[in-house]
Nucleic acid binder design. Structure first.
Lengths: 345, 345
DNA sequence: CTGGTTTTGGGTAACGTTCCCCACAAGGTG
DNA sequence: CACCTTGTGGGGAACGTTACCCAAAACCAG
């Protein structure tokens, strides 16, 4: 290996010279643009291969596109996101676009930083996954680059959205538990105060869906919601609070799988068994819900489909920025496992 | 919101005009370059704020840097990587660099695609996490942009490396199990045939470490290695094979936590208990190893430290591309939990 | 064969920065 | 007071690509 590595990159000019044509011609071939004959195509492609030329994305961005798509994800740890990413990358596989992930790190400030960085780098499109940012910021981003928002329920005239129907998901869980004979079904939600988020964030919708479904099953009097956070610790605290009640619930619907993990811990600590004494259900059908020793009943969000649709919408919008915004809502499915069973007695 | 959003981006020229100075001056302030007085700084900064100017990274890249660092990660699902990423982002937090993640999707071709894409976009530095690519490709990347390779043991004159001592990790596990009184300690490894990878990949080193440690504890005659893959399925198959032996092992050291999950499943299926009949240990100390119902004994790789060091090395190398390559090796730590105990009788 | 349309190829000016110089002024030295 | 430094500011040419236009050639109908 040559330590200094000072050799200049092959440019479009080198290709043009080598193929004995103009740079314009090469550019046309690269972009499959109108005005290049089949012979021209062949000649240029050969030169490109011979020289090992690769277009410089930064330079392209100065005039045209960068062929780069940014995906903002708020939390790399969330085991639900990889599914979405697979759907996105699979859809973009055949295209010339390259995906890069921007770590949002769960905060409005961090999210703003990555999205701005994406815009600064001239990315052609942005997919934001479950953003916590304000509506205003989402619209700011969307007004400077084609944007698709995933996992937020509010719609906007400037961006497309793809989301799972959380109301329906919550209803599936409540229906499943009620069907097993449970009446005292409690819910642990992620505390939310901001009014927009109360309307748009999935966690808020799940809590709403829980309440609606309880009423629909004639269980309105047993509605019992504890507000903590979507973390293992939050689940642990929430479950402790519930188990301390004079009449503790026989089933707990945790708003997310991590929360359910905390619940399992608290239940075991109280000397109770799952599902013998308490049934537990989660949400997201993450990888560890499927693990043998855990085997958690959960709700599957069809992450792959979400990703596929998001990528599809983004490609469409990049092709036509004026078209009216589209909202796609997908249906979740219940995955019953061994943490739910009929109540005791 | 304005649907067409045709407003032009604020450029350095706008800032220069607004501050009544030259574009060169603005550029100097932006880069903290020599030749700008404190007053100049103040004047320009004010203009930048007033206009809300943000430099266009693509354009910067044409002449200087893009202030972008690419992190290639082969598998977003691996719950060990977020730790490393946290270390990287924390270190880069204060700098002007922005991190973007490129999904490698576990394959030489996919890895080559992302790394090329990073180079095409003029990224200033690349961190490759546990790459499966050939040594030649790693050196190709490193020779065109400052590179740090994480989790590969071979060293090269063109890139820096950060890795955990897998030999030591394996030795910790064997020592722990032998200390509990086990003799029949088996190991499940990831099958590897390529000679370079046999020498460089962490999985191969763990198997080596296992053999060395067994010999060191005078247990050479009990060495028993099954080759499958680092997946849950691989662990399941490997464990089935081990349990079918005339004298099945009393302890299984799985090369990764996911593998251990498969082992737990197979053990339960065989009607045996953990750790009563069989002790199980994993590697990586992933999030689910810590989950209450699983509580898997594992080896912690200090992922955060790995990330911090990788980012630090990259910054140093970007500052001086000629400096001799550095190799950092970190020490893992054993985390005993409830899946390991003394053998039966 | 004429006058038009279509196809094909290229010249050139951007795009938004930074880098390499040069010019000038202010201060220090003999 | 001539002569160097040193500090400060700017002019202009890159960087690699694409968009916009125009010219020449080829085709076609009347």
């Amino acid at each position: 290996m040559e330590p200094p590595a000072p050799r200049r990159r092959v440019t479009i000019v080198d290709v043009a010279r080598h193929a004995q044509v103009s740079t314009t011609a090469v550019s046309k071939v690269l972009r499959n643009a109108y005005g290049a004959s089949p012979e021209m195509h062949a000649k240029v492609r050969r030169a490109i291969d011979e020289l090992g030329y690769r277009p410089h994305a930064g330079a392209r961005g100065l005039r045209g596109q960068t062929y780069t798509i940014g995906v903002m994800l708020p939390d790399i740890r969330n085991p639900f996101f990889p599914e979405i990413l697979d759907g996105i990358t699979a859809t973009l596989e055949g295209t010339e676009y390259q995906v890069f992930l921007g770590p949002g790190c769960n905060g409005e400030k961090a999210e703003a930083r990555v999205t701005e960085a994406m815009i600064d780098r001239g990315m052609d499109g942005i997919i934001m996954i479950a953003p916590v940012s304000s509506r205003a910021h989402l619209e700011h981003v969307a007004s400077s680059v084609p944007t698709v928002v995933v996992g937020r329920h509010g719609s906007s005239p400037v961006y497309d959205t793809v989301a799972d129907d959380d109301i329906e998901g919550a209803s599936l869980v409540v229906g499943h538990l009620a069907g097993l004979g449970h009446r005292r079904i409690a819910h642990i939600e992620h505390r939310e105060t901001d009014p927009t988020r109360l309307a748009e964030m999935p966690n808020a919708r799940r809590a709403d869906g829980y309440r609606q479904a309880m009423r629909a099953h004639g269980l309105a009097e047993w509605i019992d919601v504890v507000s903590t956070s979507y973390t293992q610790e939050g689940g642990y605290q929430g479950a402790k609070e519930l188990l301390d009640r004079p009449h503790p619930p026989t089933a707990v619907f945790a708003g997310a799988d991590v929360v359910a993990m905390g619940v399992l811990e608290a239940v075991a600590e109280a000397g109770l068994s799952v599902p013998g004494d308490v049934s537990v259900a989660g949400y997201d059908n993450t990888t560890f819900a499927a693990l043998g020793p855990i085997s958690l009943t959960s709700v599957d969000q069809a992450g792959y489909e979400i990703g596929r649709n998001a990528a599809r919408l983004l490609l469409d919008r990049m092709a036509d920025r004026q078209r009216p915004p589209v909202r796609i809502k997908l249906s979740p499915a219940l995955v019953p496992r061994r943490t739910t069973a009929p109540p005791p007695e």
